[in-house]
Simulated scan of single mutants.
Amino acid sequence: MLLDIEHLTVQLPGTARPVLTDVTLRVGSGEVVGLVGESGSGKSTTANAALRLLPGDATATGRITVDGTDVLSLTGDALRAHRSRTVAMVHQDPRSALNPVRRVGDFLTERLRGAGLDQRAARARAVELLAAVGLSDPERRVRQRPHELSGGMLQRVVIAGALAAEPRLLLADEATSALDVTTQAEILALLKSLRTSGGDRTPGMLFITHDLQLAAAYCDRVYVMYAGRVVEEGAAGDLFARPRHPYTRGLLDCSPTLDTEIREIRPIPGRPPSLADAFTGCEFAARCPRAEAACETWRPEPVALDGGGTAACRRLPVTSSATATATVTEGSVR
């Protein structure tokens, strides 16, 4: 397994509950795994944990391995090599990744020279990468500074930088949200093409998105997070066609689609909890239309679902312990 997170709990000082609670998540070589949920559910923190980019005062327990390496034990040069060669991350805001006074070519060649290329070869490769992500006139772009490019163009530059070191694992945190629909499709096709190299060394991707339709069409499997916990996971086609957890169902009900049948968009009542809110039962109980009195005092554990996948809801039939990951199948919802 390329990325293997087991029972990860992350606690910050002064908070009533952990940022992440008992998170188990896996990404295989060549697999695109979606991570969805409302803002504040813990998606970005999960991705940051794979890079050891948690706050310095955070306490993390559990296990994170990337390509067989124990991430939580890395220090010094080993940690720097992990962040620069094994794992790459594309953030939602490309301007946060670029120095405004340096040229685009400097950003790309710095990474490439760190991988062993000389200046001339690094510049040639930078031009190739910019062309690969669809930027016009890449020879001119490498000489430009960030303020000379649009937000969508900058996101392409950041994606090119992430691909520069040919990472084993790509963490995409809302990586296409700044792009128009046509450009988004091109970038997704580019990212998906990484899976064609074949063999055990094929890169994998953790794809964080708020777009459920995109996750359904693009991802092999999907994890749904709420209040720092994984509440449901499974093959993308199965999960969106037959959601089991009330939160997943709620996300779909309030997500607009292009279906010909007009349906009412029903938002989830209430607001997601803050880190100041402690729970003795189910985190979603206060917003759940199916909640019972017992939900306020009894925290459900993930159970295996018939047909594969897991969900954490006390109203689901308990068939077996759900510690195993669902069978990976490629599915899509159009």
Rank of each mutant, 00 (worst) to 15 (best):
D4L: 03
L12F: 13
P13Q: 03
A16P: 00
V19C: 06
L20S: 00
L25T: 04
R26L: 10
V36A: 06
E38L: 02
N48Q: 14
L54C: 06
G56H: 13
D57K: 09
A60V: 11
T61K: 11
R63Q: 13
V71I: 13
S73P: 00
A78L: 05
S84Q: 13
R85K: 12
T86M: 09
L98C: 04
L98W: 14
L108E: 10
L112K: 11
A115M: 12
L117T: 08
D118C: 02
Q119W: 10
L130Q: 11
L135Q: 11
E139S: 10
P146I: 02
E148V: 04
L149Q: 03
V158R: 11
R168M: 09
T176K: 07
T176N: 07
S177L: 06
L179V: 04
T182R: 12
T182K: 09
L191W: 08
R195S: 13
M205L: 12
L212C: 06
L214Y: 02
M225T: 01
Y226F: 08
V231G: 10
V231E: 11
G250S: 07
P256D: 06
L258G: 13
L258Q: 12
E264F: 07
P269N: 03
R271Y: 10
C288Y: 06
R290S: 14
A291L: 01
E292Q: 14
A293D: 15
E301W: 09
A304D: 08
G307A: 11
G308H: 07
G309N: 12
T310V: 12
R314E: 03
V318M: 08
T325A: 14
A326F: 07
A326H: 14
E330P: 11
G331T: 12
